[in-house]
């Protein structure tokens, strides 16, 4: 079994629809291939939602209580990305405040994008593949 074949089997492995022999082959490949092993771990983080047949029974009231608790403690599950307008205002403010003192610095320092910039613009310049086949292929280490 090669790397491509092994990764193709990740969803079936997760859904437990692969035959025992096939599963054993994949697990054996993962033991000997660090790249596919890592790709499997990346895959495993989104698989509970993308590939599990069922989700554990959630109690709606309990879910809301936990969300409220997280929000109270500042442990929000996710929070909205900064609005572009606020980001612009912040940048403008910084420019006004530090224009004189940073002009020289900025002329030599390399620009550093925010994390959001990185995830949204990381693909620019990349040639899109003709086929956008299953994700597991792309979880290469």
């Amino acid at each position: 079994m090669n790397c491509f074949e092994a990764r193709q089997e990740f969803p079936a492995l997760w859904r437990k629809t692969a035959t025992p022999e096939r599963s054993a082959e994949v697990y054996s490949h993962l033991k000997g291939c660090a790249k596919c092993d890592h790709a499997f771990r990346v895959f495993a983080l989104s698989a509970p939602v993308l590939h599990s047949a069922v989700e554990p029974e959630r109690n709606a009231a309990e879910f809301r209580r936990r969300v409220a608790y997280r929000a109270q403690r500042g442990l929000s599950v996710t929070r909205p990305a900064r609005e572009p307008r606020r980001l612009l205002a912040m940048c403008a403010g910084m420019m006004v405040l530090f224009a004189a003192s940073t002009a020289a610095y900025l002329s030599v320092a390399a620009p550093i994008g925010s994390y959001t910039d990185e995830i949204t613009n990381s693909d620019s310049g990349y040639e899109f593949p003709v086929d956008t086949a299953p994700t597991s292929n792309d979880f290469a280490g």
């Binding site: 997760w14 495993a44 983080l45 989104s46 698989a47 509970p48 939602v49 993308l50 599990s52 069922v54 989700e55 554990p56 959630r58 599950v77 996710t78 995830i119």
Partner: peptide
């Protein structure tokens, strides 16, 4: 993974991004 609620919660957090 199946029985762990947190596995599903984290996967949702990931997809929420």
């Amino acid at each position: 993974a199946e029985e762990r609620q947190e596995a599903h919660d984290l996967a949702h957090r990931l997809l929420d991004t």
